[in-house]
Nucleic acid binder design. Structure first.
Lengths: 146, 146
DNA sequence: GCTTGACCTCAAGTTAGCTTGAGGTTGTAG
DNA sequence: CTACAACCTCAAGCTAACTTGAGGTCAAGC
């Protein structure tokens, strides 16, 4: 253990609680980068511990890896993010959260309007014909919460 | 078109807007059932139009097919659901929606408490170490909203 | 110098919710 | 009675976010 800041994938895994395979997966997806040792083993910067922490937090906030990648792009590579960096990102995430809550609340309001109506008629139902789109996109997981 | 109530898969698809392949998929998953014609073609009851409508609505409410199957089990097979049937199911769904909104709101509150703290420290962060579990389960899509 | 554990790559498997395609049959309009 | 649309059954593919496994390399202790 000399003075440099490089850590192995195993150490990064221990420090973050993220499995080794998941870290490799994140790297492959471009969420983090690594150097290589002489023997082709990955070497990460200590600051990657925070980068991974960020990924974990953002996931808990309901962001997908693609969205997280976008947010990560706002953070500095290799440097510990400042308060200001973090604020920018937090506010961006906060507005995404707001939108999701708002969508669910609109849906709930429609459901309340429908309870007891027994309509289930595709032509009239406000739930079935909403103007906003939950679970309407093409493929992949849609609108699933925990 | 004689007096009976049986419709083909194509008709069911047209009436609901759900693709033929999706209907077959739902049948395979046990969400709907079908009879067969002499030539082995599916024949559905007219009431299955409502059953499918219900699936669509429940999906918009954020339920997965497995959860929808559970809710469908509360509805009568072959009979048009009464107001009472529908109310029971609506209230069950409403409470699931409530739970999801509540979880998101707790998460947002934590984020607000964190904006500007710049911690990103795994040991201390309330976002990283929440007591409730969003996106914690084993596999599959987790905690993704539209 | 050998064993052991951490690491490497690449391929395939997992769940959800479907779609797409191949290859074959049915039903109906003309 | 023939054409053609609609139907049938598998099987495989798609996205997300990973895991698991096979088969091989690297590094360190004894």
């Amino acid at each position: 253990m000399n003075g440099n800041q490089l850590i192995s994938i195993g150490t990064l895994s221990e420090r973050t609680g993220v499995s080794v395979s998941a870290i490799r997966f994140y790297e492959q997806k471009g969420l983090i980068e690594s150097l290589r040792s002489g023997g082709n083993q990955r070497r990460f910067l200590r600051s990657d511990i925070r980068r991974i922490s960020f990924i974990l937090i953002a996931q808990k906030l309901g962001l997908g890896l693609a969205e997280i990648e976008t947010e990560l792009a706002r953070l500095p590579q290799g440097r510990t993010p400042t308060k200001h960096d973090w604020e920018k990102v937090s506010r961006s995430i906060r507005s995404q959260l707001d939108a999701k809550i708002a969508l669910l609340e609109r849906t709930r309001a429609k459901l309340d309007g429908c309870i007891g109506c027994g309509c289930l008629s595709l032509k009239n139902c406000r739930l079935y014909n909403p103007n906003d789109e939950a679970g309407e996109s093409g493929s992949g997981p849609r609108f699933v919460l925990g």
